[in-house]
Design a protein around this nucleic acid. Sequence first.
DNA 1: CGCTTGCTTCGAGTGCGCTCCAAGGCGCTG
DNA 2: CAGCGCCTTGGAGCGCACTCGAAGCAAGCG
Lengths: 153, 153
Amino acid sequence: MTELASFETELRSCWEVFRDPAGTPDRRPRHTIGEVSEASGLTAHTLRWYERIGLLDPVDRSASGQRRYSDGDLHRLAFLGRLRLTGMPVADMLRYVELARQGERTSADRRDLLLAHREAVRQQIADLHATLAVLDHKIDVYTGRLERCASSH
Amino acid sequence: MTELASFETELRSCWEVFRDPAGTPDRRPRHTIGEVSEASGLTAHTLRWYERIGLLDPVDRSASGQRRYSDGDLHRLAFLGRLRLTGMPVADMLRYVELARQGERTSADRRDLLLAHREAVRQQIADLHATLAVLDHKIDVYTGRLERCASSH
DNA sequence: CGCTTGCTTCGAGTGCGCTCCAAGGCGCTG
DNA sequence: CAGCGCCTTGGAGCGCACTCGAAGCAAGCG
């Protein structure tokens, strides 16, 4: 959660993350699955499962075969995590990353996908605010600040 | 959706809905499951299931055995619908209505339940807003209004 | 060295919230 | 009175998103 937010701030330096001259591969930060799990709020199981179904490209491995996540992986994960957190189905996330893999020519499709999700997010916000009003009212009633109305409902 | 909102406005007259002298039972508005489904956005299947698991008290029946929902039922459903829509687990909703059935002495517990849910709702709103910002940024990039950063993520 | 802790695999299992089925009844319209 | 659509039941089934298990390898530490 807290960490997710810090990933977002990396947006600004993301071009840097993706500069990869393949010359100094060991100087790039590399994270174990446990660290990434901790940071992203997703379990290690879920991280492996995301990779299996193709949400993540195959992650680099250490000499002994353990996963080592790059900052680029973390970055993508942070974004995917936000999409999930806000209710995008995994199938749609998959569609998005598959479009992304096809390169520049799918950018219009990806934008449409994000536009649709933005609408969904806005709708959710509206629903939540409406519910918040109802909750506030009922809580006031329960707290005895307002005359109560009847019973349960 | 639209209908849900109109149910909420009944809050103000809810004491009236619950006045039930049992003298003029046929004058109370009575709704078929289809109408209620339409109005609440829940399928007829789901409405029957809610009743089966105890989220709704047993609904009145017509002479031929078909369900006839009262405005009180609609009212409770509208509220339950809001709780579901905003992510409260069915188990918690059940706990809430069971407390309500036990009468006045559980009102503190019910208030606590609603307080907890209100916090959850606020958290969701915060998450959604944060995501909205990210989406806005990315959509801008895809639309070409901003220099793009690298690729997919 | 032994111990602990964390990592690997992949298929099977879980929990939630519906969703559907089949077979039959009700009731309005033409 | 035929036809049509909506209603009834209990139990089984489904889709999603994880979640876990079991067996085994690897790294770090006193």
